[in-house]
Nucleic acid binder design. Structure first.
Lengths: 137, 137
DNA sequence: GCCAAGTTCACCCGTTCGGGCGATTGCCAG
DNA sequence: CTGGCAATCGCCCGAACGGGTGAACTTGGC
């Protein structure tokens, strides 16, 4: 975030310097006038477009998962969340057990708790619920 | 789409008229100068930001489902698609059978074909693949 | 007419899943 | 220190799922 602010600050500073140079050129040549004005307008137009895209277009695809509100409301523990993500990735209990370095029995326990908290009877249903709640992308 | 283009055209025309008016003012007052330049720059900056946001921020939510290309590429039949949607909705074979008014055995057959075509071994994996291909939302 | 493809259903068998119950360990708050 | 909670693992059993195979029947096209 601060990197971005500093970056744009530097950009504006560079723009200001450029303007001062242009101003100098203008004084020297006495009224190059409209061309100069056009250049300034174009430059700021481009700058504006870049700013608009970079600043306001970014948050759109960042409607990121892991909705903390839903997680808290359901009382999902950290380990359960990990299992839930593996679940949504389409892995079997055995695979999840391997990925998390635990026994398949443990995974079964976590999955069972997830079913309770999500109000699901099947893992496919649990995935659907988790997606509806925005916990999983 | 054309409405947008026309709208921005009108906006630019209005901006041009405003500029001509400002130009007139400048000639009258002889070198209001830097303030004028600043105003032009600011106006174009704002215009640029608006353009950037309006044009490039929108297309995010337009990632619709039912991708016909993927469906054709995989050779999914109509019935298989119906089963696939039920599958992604988190229903069991028995429930799908009831919804489609067929035998659970039939559903099993369709699901097995879906696994072949989607390259999946579990129904959760099939759901994931279908989502990646944009066949289901 | 006959072939191809889609849809439908059936049976067997092995694996996975889900429910239920119990148990241990570690940590943190009261 | 004691009770609660999360995490871990085990076992049993029934239900659901998945693989394999076979077989009708319909529909559209060659």
């Amino acid at each position: 975030m601060w990197k971005r602010v500093v970056g744009y600050g530097a950009l504006l500073a560079a723009g200001t310097l450029a303007l001062q140079w242009l101003d100098y050129q203008r004084l020297v040549r006495m009224h190059a006038g409209d061309v100069y004005l056009f250049l300034v307008a174009a430059a700021f137009l481009v700058l504006g477009i870049v700013l608009g895209v970079r600043v306001f277009a970014a948050p759109a695809p960042t409607a990121f998962d892991g909705n903390p509100k839903a997680q808290a409301a359901l009382g999902l523990s950290g380990r359960e969340l990990e299992v839930l993500h593996e679940l949504a990735a389409g892995h079997s209990n055995k695979e999840i057990a391997a990925h998390l370095h635990v026994s398949p029995n443990t995974v079964k326990t976590h999955v069972a708790r997830l079913f309770e908290k999500l109000g699901a009877k099947r893992r496919t249903e649990a995935i659907r619920r988790a997606r509806e709640l925005g916990i999983v992308p």
